[in-house]
Design a protein around this nucleic acid. Structure first.
Lengths: 245, 245
DNA sequence: GATTGTAGTATTGTCGACAATTAGACAATG
DNA sequence: CATTGTCTAATTGTCGACAATACTACAATC
């Protein structure tokens, strides 16, 4: 007895505008489900992903799951080794540097564009998101809100290509940040919250349309946030190497 | 009687260094084969890609082919519509603008890094490539050499993340340039060769380690080259729209 | 004549089964 | 005791078959 679709976080039938009739395929749903599992921490970085159990859990065949997994490989969330299975990626500190640098190049452009193209309704939305983020005490949910805020800004920029690239770059970073959060003691977590002030200033700059300010804010925001995480990752792999010996 | 592997451009057993024992899977070979078919013009932009004939031609099952095609979707070379099959993408002029802009952001950084990190052996290689490119009269081969030259520079930059993104951005552009070349009259082709001088200056700047010059060269190179193609694409879609009526 | 309904066919979506490969346990050998 | 060889179980790689859907042509209706 299969229990299909229980896993899928079924979205409330996204008000199909006439242009977008393309019903999403099973593969897309599986892709979203696995991606969500990684990005919510249910599948942790470095963890082996076995096809049979996961396919059964999702109520689909392995073939479909494998197709979805290929997409995740290309998105940088999974690693494949022939006959040895797939693992969720595990970034090394240098890779984090690279990804953050690339993100900076692209996201700077994105926020500048957002400054030019933002509408009033979107201004309200950004402020609401920022306010919600400021009030959120739970670290995990705060991280997810932070991600949503960024994504919203990319969308507002109207630059689809850059948006896709940023989404791709951010996924593995976010997954690693989850691993760090779960790996470290509760005390450390309290000691390093997200730098809230930068969000406020970033949103403000975009809403008043000051590209230079916005660019500066996004730079400090990214740099501060990820140098902290980079340090933790470095400590983490050092500890891991030590255990190996 | 199947004729497996006849299609695969079998590479001469890429001197496996001890670290890289991972024998490439059938899926990777299929991926490379289809990608090659698109990037060599055998599969043209906008063309429908039917699974059964292609799978038979490659001598593999549809399942494998579909996995490979998923990767190509993510790379931006294929488009999927449920139950309607896959097509090779067809870029609109605005998309070309976007991609070129993103490429510019990333490739500028790449050439600057290449200036810092290049070795003597690589200098020789770049010069050799550039010389070969300068002598090449055939437009298609010249385009492929141009691509190789760029890719080599990305590799020299040592920035794996940027390299991957650039590869992704360039694939669809290149495919479209092939379409343009085949769509237009022979006379026009002669009239618009690649701007060779910029390659020479670009390679020179990188080899002598002048980041500012190199960045300027890559910018003019990309801009000149792709505004020309963008114009042709615009004409092409206009002609196409006209035929529809 | 244009539109609508209705086969039939071609193509994609999905699945379960079997083959190939790896990893780990355990015995044999020096 | 360390090393090597062999067997077994678990897992992935590959395939062919069947179901679901979309496209085409043609007939029916107004």
């Amino acid at each position: 007895m299969k229990q299909t679709a229980r896993i899928f976080a079924v979205p409330p039938a996204p008000v199909s505008r006439l242009a977008k009739i393309s019903k999403e395929s099973t593969r897309d749903k599986v892709y979203a489900a696995v991606r969500g599992a990684i990005l919510s921490g249910r599948l942790r970085c470095g963890e082996r992903v076995k096809e049979i159990p996961l396919a059964e859990e999702l109520g689909v065949s392995r073939a479909i799951l494998r197709e979805a997994m290929q997409q995740l490989v290309h998105e940088g969330l999974l690693e494949f080794n022939p006959y040895r299975g797939a693992r969720v990626i595990e970034l090394r500190p240098e890779q984090i540097d690279e990804i953050v640098e690339a993100r900076l190049l692209l996201e700077t452009r994105a926020v500048r564009l957002a400054c030019e193209r933002i509408h009033d309704a979107q201004r309200d939305e950004l402020h609401a998101l920022e306010k919600q983020l400021r009030k959120e005490k739970d670290a995990l949910r705060a991280g997810q809100l932070d991600l949503r805020l960024h994504q919203r800004i990319w969308e507002i920029s109207g630059h689809v290509t850059i948006e896709k690239l940023l989404r791709q770059l951010t996924s593995p970073l976010f997954a690693m940040s989850l691993l760090m959060r779960s790996a470290e003691s509760r005390k450390d977590q309290e000691a390093s919250p997200l730098p809230r002030g930068t969000h406020e200033r970033l949103v403000a700059s975009i809403c008043e349309g000051s590209p230079a300010d916005a660019a500066r804010e996004i730079e400090t925001h990214l740099t501060e946030n990820w140098t902290a995480i980079r340090r933790r990752v470095a400590e983490f792999v050092a500890r891991q190497e030590a255990e190996k010996l």
